[in-house]
Every structure is written in C-alpha cells, then in structure tokens.
C-alpha cells in the first residue's frame, strides 16, 4: 500500500558520526549492526530515507577521511571511494586515458549531483542504471573493500547481486576502485540515453578497445539499465576480440549484446526500445572507442 512520504523532512531520530579512520568506520558499522549507513554525498541515501525506501538510525559521515577522496595514477587508476563524480570528470589522470569514465561522469544528470555524489556511493547504491559502473567495468575495476576482519579485492562484475544489493558485508566498506592500466592503443567511450538530459539512464553503454595494428586485441562491452545489475556482454566481447573492425563486425557485436541483455519495461522505457537502443549505442560506442584508439574509420 502506498505511503505518502514527506520530502520536507527526514523522519526519525538520527545519530551522525564522523570517524577519523576507515577502521573506525568499519567498527561503527559493526557496532550499529544494520542500523548504520555510510553517508557519502547523500544523493541516493537521503532520497531513499526521505522516500522511506531505506532506514537508518545512525549515519556515518566520511568527511574526515580525506584519503578516500584521492584520485591517483599508480599502476592504472585508483579512485578513492569518496571521490566526487565531478572531481573524477575533471581529473587530468582520467581525461583522455579513461575517456569512458570521464564521459560517464559528465553524463550525470545535474551539476549539483556531480558535486555531491561520489563514485563509491554510485557503486554501492548498486542501481542497474548507475552511470559510472559500465565505465568501471570496461576498465576491469576491482573494488577494494575493508571490513573489521581485513581487506579484500572483488572484481566489480562480482560485486553486484541484484538491484540495490552487493556482496559487501555489514561491517565492510568500499575503500577504492582500482582500474587496469591503459596502453597507447586503448580507446574507450560511454554513451547514455535518458528521457531528458537531466535524467538517469534508460540505457547506457561503455566500450573499451585495445588496438593492436588493425585488430582488436582485447575489449570490454558493458551496459547499464538493461538487466538487474550493470552487465558485461561476453558475447559482444567474444565477437570483437582478435578481429579487425568492420561495419558487419560492429553490427554483429551489437546484435550479440542486444540478445544477451534482459531489459524490462518500466516508467522510463520499454524492453523493446532498450534492446534496440542498446544495440545502437554499442555500435556507436565501438566506433568512437576505435577512433580514440587510433584505429582507422570503420566501414
């Protein structure tokens, strides 16, 4: 039954704490057993609390954890979980080399949300439409998790269980996202369709191609908002890998991706549209990525 929520307010008492270390944050998570939530930018969490789709008694702020906001370029790219979408979009380490990630961050619906929202929040919120996730998948991102009992690294495509659900334990938090290094022959692109520009995706696609001469040595094709979690299309990747791109190949890959996904009909779009549009975006993204990788125009 529908409850009329009240977005004027946050209902319910809230404790707010700002731990000084990640360990302390994990301890707090454990201590409040299920009643505490990490608060990064709050652009998902506070909306969910207001619309009563989530509950919390204690919010754990991350302002005193500056190391989590850092973006570094050692051995690939490492994004602190609390790096804001805007800081990633504007980072010199990201620009060009991780074009798909930059485009994904710029595709965020509004400036204010880019300023407030973080990549960790985007990932941990586990929305199938999260914009950064296809791009992160395209760069083989590994999630660095830390809990009371230590650290572990989880490949991003194993992090999501379903809409809003991840493999994180109750006392665990995301510390960083480590993206694979890119080479001179790497090109990538991210494309998104919304109903209006300031919207979450009804379909999104990220593609990364590693070019070797006229061939695609390796590649990733990842899609958002077309399945219960952001997904990679293994079929499309298989179709492309080792091949020299041609119009026919690009079409085959797009068809493979469109066949593999499991889109639904909802208020934002229809399953049929999503399937078709996903194919179109995959083609467009491959062409862009290939051009960025220095490849010749695909005919």
């Amino acid at each position: 039954m529908l409850t009329f929520t009240n977005s004027h307010l946050l209902l319910g008492e809230l404790d707010y704490v700002e731990p000084a270390s990640v360990d302390e944050a994990c301890a707090l998570l454990a201590e409040h057993a299920g009643e505490a939530r990490l608060l990064a930018g709050g652009t998902d969490l506070l909306v969910q609390l207001k619309l009563e789709r989530a509950e919390a008694r204690c919010l754990i702020g991350m302002r005193r954890l500056p190391e989590l906001r850092r973006i570094t370029g050692e051995d690939g790219l490492v994004l602190g979980a609390a790096a804001t979408i805007r800081s990633i979009a504007r980072s010199a380490l990201v620009r060009g080399r991780y074009a798909a990630l930059q485009e994904a961050c710029e595709a965020f619906s509004t400036l204010q949300v880019m300023v407030m929202g973080t990549v960790g929040g985007n990932v941990c919120n586990a929305s199938p439409a999260a914009d950064t996730v296809p791009a992160l998948l395209a760069f083989d991102a590994r999630a660095g998790l830390r809990g009371r009992h230590g650290e572990r690294a989880v490949p991003l495509d194993e992090l999501f269980v379903g809409p809003g659900r991840t493999v994180l334990h109750a006392d665990e938090m995301l510390e960083s996202l480590r993206l694979a290094p890119v080479s001179a022959g790497t090109g990538s692109a991210f494309l998104k369709l919304g109903r209006v520009a300031a919207d979450i995706a009804k379909v999104s696609v990220a593609v990364r191609l590693d070019r070797e001469g006229e061939h695609i040595r390796d590649c990733r094709v990842a899609l958002g908002a077309v399945a219960p979690t952001p997904v990679r299309s293994g079929e499309a990747e298989r179709a492309l890998r080792g091949q020299a791109p041609s119009a026919a190949l690009v079409q085959d890959a797009a068809r493979a991706a469109a066949d593999e996904i499991r889109p639904i009909t909802d208020v934002r779009s229809t399953a049929a549209y999503r399937r078709h549009a996903a194919g179109v975006l995959v083609q467009d993204a491959i062409r862009r990525a290939w051009a960025r990788a220095g490849g010749r125009e695909i005919r």
Binding site: S7, L10, L14, Y16, L39, G42, T43, L46, V47, L59, G61, L111, Q112, V113, V115, M116
Partner: peptide, 8 residues
C-alpha cells in the same frame, strides 16, 4: 553548488 534539501 549543493542541494540543501539533501544535506544534513
């Protein structure tokens, strides 16, 4: 620029 409706 920040949204004050989503800021504690």
């Amino acid at each position: 620029p920040v949204l004050s409706c989503l800021t504690l």
